[in-house]
Design a protein around this nucleic acid. Structure first.
Lengths: 205, 205
DNA sequence: CTCTAAAGCTACCGATCGGTAGGAAATTCA
DNA sequence: TGAATTTCCTACCGATCGGTAGCTTTAGAG
């Protein structure tokens, strides 16, 4: 056992609350005092547990990737039909708001605009861009596999489709954060998928 | 003539500089001191000329609407072929970065994420959302006209198309701000327009 | 029970935030 | 040349920012 006084709060649980705050308010919109109040811990305890604000944000972003990102990627891989897989991703973005206490949209998309300002630490900007790239690459991998399965519309380029749907997800993320209605967003998803008729999957000849 | 000491700076010219700063750094990323230094004017002069920070941002946003928004809407209306009109809008977003000293993307899209934080003045959040809505409505008007002209793909719903392309523009705005390459963005535009083959316009039977 | 190590807190640091008081400078009107 | 008016700037306000010094409290090791 480790010596010393044990920590009075759960690190992961606390990180989930902090994540939600950064998500809603942005990197410099959420002050350390506000965060400390929200999790019911004094400010120095935050610094003891997570370092400075930059490393705290990076930890929250990593937690988001582990919790939400991995889940989405797993769902993307698990669905056998590529069209249904990407449709599930788009619908998840549409339905994102009230699933739990999380804000609407996607934390990475929100942070992409929030963290482009020059005074944001370089490491934070880099982490956000890296996660945006990794999302597009996850899509590309899924579409490459679909191409091998003969599961793509004829003549479709997997990487181009990944860039396209990645951009569309960013757009939906902005709309969700701006308070767009679910109906409007569903309409967008329908329009975007309308060009990709079902039935290409090899199990649906 | 008005009595009193004449203003030493041009209001519109100054507003253009301030607009660019808000665009890059966001509402609270750009401090009044930073703005004053950038335009070469003392801080109290800013308050004399524009009121407080909130009204200064609203003035900058209105200037953006007059300068860039109106130009895009005019181009959208001027192009007779609806497909070419929306293609021009998408390409303008792709090419937005180095046209002048302006940052990449679109100020409204950037502000949509930046101004969703709870500590941003209500009027600012409302103005941003209103401009986002007005953009979609401008697209809808253009597509309604195209529907009358028989200039839309068969069975297309003008309002759904407006929501779709509006969302796509938001996505491109995020990508541009996140530093996506022009080639990747062009690929996205190609994918998005690929489903809308040319030749529907009545002058191209 | 004592010592050590880790975590808790109050109270504070300098810097910067948005915003303003109050006087000097510049211009028109009489 | 005054008086009136408007803009300019230096210097300052309280509040809040990220971050920390230093003491107290809680635990295990001996």
């Amino acid at each position: 056992m480790v010596r010393g006084r044990p920590r009075s709060f759960d690190r992961i649980e606390t990180l989930d609350q902090i994540l939600a705050l950064f998500w809603r308010e942005g990197f410099d919109g959420a002050s350390m005092q506000q965060i400390a109040d929200a999790v019911g811990v004094s400010k120095p305890s935050l610094y003891d547990a997570f370092g400075n604000k930059e490393s705290l944000f990076l930890a929250a972003l990593a937690r988001y990737a582990d919790r939400d990102g991995q889940r989405q990627i797993a769902a993307l891989e698990a669905e056998a039909d590529a069209r249904l897989a990407v449709l599930g991703l788009l619908n998840a973005m549409v339905d994102s708001s009230p699933i739990c206490g999380s804000p609407a949209g996607c934390m990475v998309v929100a942070s992409a605009s929030l963290c482009a300002a020059s005074h944001i630490p370089e490491a934070v900007q880099g982490a956000v861009r890296s996660m945006l790239d990794r999302s597009t690459e996850a899509l590309a991998r899924r579409f490459e596999r679909a191409a091998c399965d003969g599961d793509l519309p004829p003549g479709a380029d997997p990487r181009a489709m990944a860039a396209y749907f990645g951009t569309l997800l960013c757009g939906l993320g902005v709309q969700a954060r701006a308070g767009a209605s679910r109906d409007a967003m569903r309409q967008v998803v329908t329009s975007a998928m309308g060009t990709w008729p079902p039935g290409h999957h090899r199990t649906q000849p």
